[in-house]
Design a protein around this nucleic acid. Structure first.
Length: 486
RNA sequence: GGCGGCAUCGCCAAGUGGACUAAGGCCACGGUUUGCAAAACCGUUAUCCUGGGUUCGAAUCCCAGUGCCGCCUCCA
């Protein structure tokens, strides 16, 4: 068994081996913080979060870097648009720095809600201007970049391997169906490394070529080199960034360093909404904050993971509702397990229990090894639940140790690796619990007496009323349990 | 126009040459359990877009067709 990744560069699944044994360097293209994060961000970052979690589970020491783009991302790729940050700051009448702060916080807030582990380093482009300038100087010195009217461009023709990731041919690029001719460039496909700041442009830094600001592609090269070295193990990002962003990163980095930039390129697929591409211009944009009003963040996470990261994900209410119910099913089992655990005693081990647990664990790991097949991995969790439910309902005494070990399996696979099983379920949440628990205890005791006396009308009345306030009762052979529902 | 991807049960979605008489979830129906429920369990539901081909053997490979989608503007 070995972990395999589909490498976009070679277009093949490959067994993963890190450059340095036991350590993995991972860079994922982070957000441009000019708006609230949307469900597309969620798919991308949940996907890579699970990859990071799994690598760590396998025992690798992972350094996970994910940038925050706070300058240089233009509104189009022809190097002629406005800076997104500047544009949006003007619209919202705030300082660019303020805007960046607002949306960076919003970003982390939503990622935290999705239970993504924070990157080890979240470097900002504006905090790495010297590193970027240094890289530029190196590229100019080596003849890959040229200065033109205070801007610096990368001369694509000089880098023979340009196109190796995206499959674009040099000639096609120059034919440039939609690239506007920029007279400052030697060739239409050359891309900006550094842009001259026009008078009145707010975000500007001093450079050997006058005041300006860095191009979007440059930051990722500079920052990944700084924190992860000249060759990194994994670079991740959305499919749509293969061209031009990642192609440009390769060109800059490899031209500067004369060695491979990335060993495994991993790209996640896109989100559609009701079968349609999600885009700003189409107006079918769903922010996470909006999605969370309707669905729990972990439902969104679970939903994302039911599809493979390289497949497109269609976001629809029906699909989310189905995911939510499925997740609820998993949670029910876990809650019952935890309740049972609370009063379990030492006792016997059900026959073959440990063989079964081992079997499921193995199946789960095999799924994850196969290019992070979370869909299969989740199916394994449902298989486990089926068996555990049967066991819990069997009426047999189960030793505490066994219950703990079952629970540990869930925590490891569903909790640590997939991040869909929290330590405390919503239905178990504290807060008002002490009071609530007491009141519920009273109600359940009362109702229990009523049921003994076959006062069905009254006992059903209590149950229905509780349901109205979002609490469901389940009468089990060994007593009544309650839980909050959504 | 160039490049790439996808098409599997009512819906979502794994599987990419042989344990597939195709996983898992949702929905539906029947049953067990229950005072009735809930939860849970059991059962029922597909030959894999179409047509050719390769192979002892294909959902899985090749060719053609049809349909959908993405990138080359915005966007993870």
């Amino acid at each position: 068994m070995a972990l395999k990744f589909y490498n976009s560069l070679t277009k093949k699944k490959e067994i993963f081996t890190p450059l340095h044994e036991g350590r993995v360097t991972l860079y994922v293209c982070g957000p441009t913080v000019y708006d609230h994060p949307h469900i597309g961000h969620a798919k991308s970052y949940v996907s890579f979060d699970v990859i990071v979690r799994y690598l760590r589970y396998l025992g690798y020491k992972v350094r996970y870097v994910q940038n925050i783009t706070d300058v240089g991302h233009l509104t189009d790729n022809a190097d002629t648009g406005e800076d997104k940050i500047v544009k949006r700051a003007q619209r919202e009448h705030v300082e660019p720095a303020e805007l960046v702060e607002i949306y960076t916080r919003s970003y982390f807030e939503d990622m935290d809600a999705l239970n993504n582990v924070r990157p080890d380093i979240s470097p900002r482009a504006t905090a790495h201007i010297p590193e970027q300038i240094e890289l530029l100087e190196k590229l100019i010195e080596k003849g890959y970049a040229y200065v033109s009217h205070g801007s610096v461009y990368f001369e694509v023709q000089k880098f023979k391997e340009y196109g190796k990731l995206s499959g674009r041919k040099q000639e096609e690029l120059d034919a440039g169906a939609r690239i506007e001719i920029n007279p400052e460039k030697r060739n239409p496909s050359d891309f900006a490394l550094w842009k001259r700041a026009e008078p009145g442009h707010i975000m500007r830094w001093k450079s050997p070529w006058g005041e300006g600001f860095p191009g979007w592609h440059l930051e990722c090269s500079a920052m990944s080199m700084k924190y992860l070295g000249q060759t990194i193990d994994i670079h991740g990002g959305g499919l749509e960034n293969i061209f031009p962003h990642h192609e440009c990163e390769i060109a800059q980095s490899e031209a500067a360093n004369n060695q491979p930039f990335v060993r495994y390129w991993i790209h996640n697929n896109m989100v559609t909404v009701n079968g349609q591409k999600m885009g700003k211009s189409l107006g079918n944009f769903i922010t996470l904050k909006d999605a969370f009003k309707k669905y729990r963040p972990l439902t969104v996470r679970f939903f994302i993971l039911t599809t493979h990261y390289r497949s497109p994900l269609d976001f629809s209410n029906e699909a989310l509702d189905a995911a939510d119910k499925g997740l609820e099913r998993l949670y029910n089992t876990i809650q019952h397990l935890r309740e049972r655990l609370a009063y379990a005693q030492d006792g016997s081990t059900p026959p073959h229990l440990y063989e079964r647990l081992e079997h499921y664990k193995k199946a789960f790991i095999e799924a994850m090894d196969e290019d992070i097949n979370t869909s299969d991995a989740i199916a394994v969790l449902f298989d486990v639940s089926k068996e555990v439910n049967t066991l819990l309902n069997s009426g047999e005494e189960i030793g505490k140790k066994c219950l703990e070990d079952i629970h540990a399996l869930y925590q490891q696979l569903g909790g640590d690796i997939l991040g869909i099983i929290p330590d405390v379920l919503e239905s178990e949440q504290k807060g008002e619990t002490d009071t609530l628990k007491n009141i519920m205890g009273m109600l359940i005791d009362t109702r229990c007496e009523l049921r003994k006396a076959k006062q069905w009308q009254l006992s059903d009345f209590i149950r229905n009323k509780l349901l109205e306030v979002g609490i469901t009762l389940e009468d089990k052979p060994d007593g009544t349990v309650w839980r909050k529902i959504k």
